[in-house]
Each structure stands twice: as structure tokens, then as C-alpha cells.
């Protein structure tokens, strides 16, 4: 029984991933898009594939927990068309039910976009025919539109002007799929805002959620452009310590994962301590131990509890050691002050 339920929960987790969603805020429209084809599971040989770690149950639990769930913030993220408010008279039970459904809807919206390696480029030449060189002045792109073939599996081939027949590369695939099987919110040519010089300008205006949401709609999660844009945004947030903007959005988990993966969690920890979120802080350190099992922190972590874990990290692997130590001390002092007051 226990085994079967475990299997069931594993299946649920998997199915959860196959239906990762994309939401975006537009002026007056809302679009939700499922990423059913996002999973290109690398075979588990490469230990350094972050996606395998990212989707593990424990990591997911930690990321979900530290994201938090502020129903008001989540429901405000999507500005739909203006409507008149409706007023209802509800009993106590009905109110609870309504709250529960709102919480569920919010949780559904908080599903995280996966953290993946860039996809491998396609260099697949099917045939070379030098006799055919110059048959036309432009390329031909052939798409199989047979019923029931997904965008990921669709066969798309290109006949180049020099007569070679090859499989279409990722750029061509994305464009052609958008022509024959368009996705709401996605644009044929990626917007200029994702170019490096414009990206910087948008980020300087603190439009982090806008940028990340837009990237989620435009790109697949293993698209190098998606990875470039999101990582730059995370870097910018880390540099300017604007972590709180992303709290209670679906991007907080990937951001934490990115920072932990790249050994940059010091500022995040300091921010969490300042906001009095010591539990989250400990969770982040636990995450660090999971992602870096050979680090000094992981080696010295045996039978340490609560705040001691953060201290161990601070002593062993922190880069901003002084600042982190200071904030831990301040936190402990404030705790002591509180306990004195109550006594």
C-alpha cells in the first residue's frame, strides 16, 4: 500500500512537470500555456545536469516552501479585463470553500518553470545532392502536419540551395511551429527587449516579473535565449538585493536554485535574516548541502540544528562572511531581547 501510494505521488510529481504552465500578463488578455513538451530528460549519466536535481522531490519541496503563498499577490499578478465586483452572501462553510479554491488556484499559478541546460544544436544532414545545386534561389522548408504530432516531435526538413537535405535547426523549428501551430502570446520574431542592450534598460526599471513572464511565454525552457535572459535577470536581482519582488511568484524557486547552484546565496541569506525568515534561511542552506554534497559545509554539517546550520555555512563557504555573520548576530540579539521582554 505504502509503495503504491509512493508510486502514485511520484507519478503525480511527474505529471505535474509535464503540465508546467506559462502565464503572462498582457494589457488586457491573459494567456496560460502548458509546457507539455518541455521535458527532454537527459539520461542520468551526467551528474551535473541541474534539471535532474531541480525536479527531485526534496528540492521541489524546499523551493515551494520558501516561495511562500500570498494569495493576494498571486491573484493580482494577472490583470484581466476590468469587471464589476460581485458581492455574495456566504455562510462560514462556503467562505472556507471559496478561500480553499482561491488557494488552490494560486498554487496552480505558482508552478515553477524548470531550470535546464541549453538544448543541443541539431546538425542532421539527411542527404547531399550536388547535382541539385542552384535549383532555386531560396530554401524550401517542409513541415509534416500529420494529425496528432506535437511541436517537439514534428518532422521539419530543409532543402538548402546547394542541394543538401537536412533537419531544421532550432531557430527554424521554433519559427515554423509558430506559423503552423501558433501559441498565444508568442511572437514570430523574439521581441527586441530580449537583446542585451535593451535587457539592461528594462531591468534597471525593476521590471523583473514582466521580463521573466515574457521570457516564459516566448521561449522554451531549454532555449539558450531563455537561459541567458533569466540568468541575467537573476544576477541583476542579486546585485541589487531585490529578492522580495519575486517572493510569492513562480520565479522565486528558479532564482534561488540558480543562486545556490552558482554559490551566490550570501546576499539572499542576509535578506532573509533581515526580514526575519530564519526558517527559509535554514532551508536555503539545506538546499546548498543537497546541491553541493562535496563542499566543506556539507562535510561539517553532521548533527547541526537550526541556526547552527547557517553558521556552519557562514564559516565554511560564505563569500560575504563578515556581513552574514553580523546579520546572524543581530538576529540572535533581537531574539534574546524578545525573550527577556517576555520574561
Amino acid at each position: 500500500m505504502a509503495a503504491s501510494s509512493r508510486r502514485l505521488s511520484y507519478c503525480l510529481l511527474k505529471s505535474n512537470y509535464t503540465a508546467l504552465l506559462r502565464q503572462v500578463t498582457f494589457q488586457k488578455s491573459r494567456c496560460v500555456r502548458s509546457l507539455s513538451s518541455a521535458i527532454t530528460t537527459e539520461t542520468g549519466k551526467d551528474d551535473k545536469d541541474p534539471f535532474v536535481v531541480f525536479r527531485s522531490q526534496e528540492v521541489q519541496r524546499i523551493l515551494k516552501k520558501i516561495t511562500g503563498l500570498n494569495v493576494e499577490k498571486v491573484s493580482h499578478m494577472v490583470s484581466s479585463t476590468l469587471k464589476k465586483p460581485t458581492y455574495k452572501l456566504l455562510t462560514e462553510e462556503e467562505t472556507q470553500e471559496a478561500e480553499e479554491s482561491a488557494r488552490k488556484a494560486a498554487e496552480w499559478k505558482l508552478q515553477m518553470p524548470p531550470f535546464m541546460l541549453p538544448r543541443k544544436p541539431i546538425h542532421d544532414i539527411l542527404s547531399k545532392d550536388p547535382d541539385l545545386e542552384g535549383f532555386d534561389s531560396s530554401k524550401y522548408v517542409f513541415t509534416d502536419i500529420s494529425f496528432g504530432v506535437s511541436n517537439k516531435e514534428r518532422l521539419i526538413v530543409v532543402r538548402d540551395t546547394d542541394g543538401t537535405l537536412r533537419k531544421a535547426d532550432w531557430d527554424e523549428r521554433d519559427r515554423v511551429n509558430q506559423v503552423y501551430n501558433p501559441t498565444t502570446g508568442q511572437v514570430y520574431i523574439a521581441p527586441k527587449m530580449f537583446d542585451d542592450e535593451n535587457l539592461e534598460r528594462v531591468l534597471n526599471d525593476d521590471k523583473y516579473i514582466y521580463m521573466l513572464d515574457r521570457a516564459c511565454v516566448q521561449f522554451e525552457p531549454d532555449n539558450p535565449d531563455f537561459i541567458r535572459v533569466t540568468h541575467k535577470t537573476f544576477e541583476h536581482i542579486n546585485k541589487n538585493r531585490k529578492f522580495d519582488v519575486l517572493r510569492s511568484t513562480r520565479h522565486f524557486g528558479p532564482m534561488t536554485f540558480y543562486l545556490t547552484w552558482n554559490n551566490k546565496i550570501d546576499l539572499l541569506l542576509v535578506d532573509m535574516i533581515h526580514r526575519g525568515l530564519m526558517d527559509d534561511c535554514i532551508d536555503v542552506v539545506n538546499l546548498y548541502v543537497i546541491l553541493h554534497p562535496t563542499s566543506k559545509t556539507a562535510n561539517n554539517m553532521q548533527d547541526k540544528q537550526d541556526i547552527e546550520r547557517v553558521k556552519t555555512y557562514c564559516q565554511n563557504d560564505a563569500e560575504n562572511k563578515a556581513e552574514l555573520e553580523l546579520s546572524i548576530q543581530a538576529f540572535e540579539d533581537s531574539l534574546r531581547g524578545k525573550s527577556k521582554q517576555t520574561a
Binding site: 530554401k139 513541415t143 509534416d144 502536419i145 500529420s146 494529425f147
Partner: peptide, 12 residues
């Protein structure tokens, strides 16, 4: 992009 687009339902 100097491409001519062709789509075919090979099954049918």
C-alpha cells in the same frame, strides 16, 4: 529569411 514554406500531411 529567404525560405519557401511547404506543409504536407504525409499520413493522408
Amino acid at each position: 529569411f529567404n525560405e519557401k514554406l511547404v506543409s504536407v500531411n504525409f499520413e493522408r
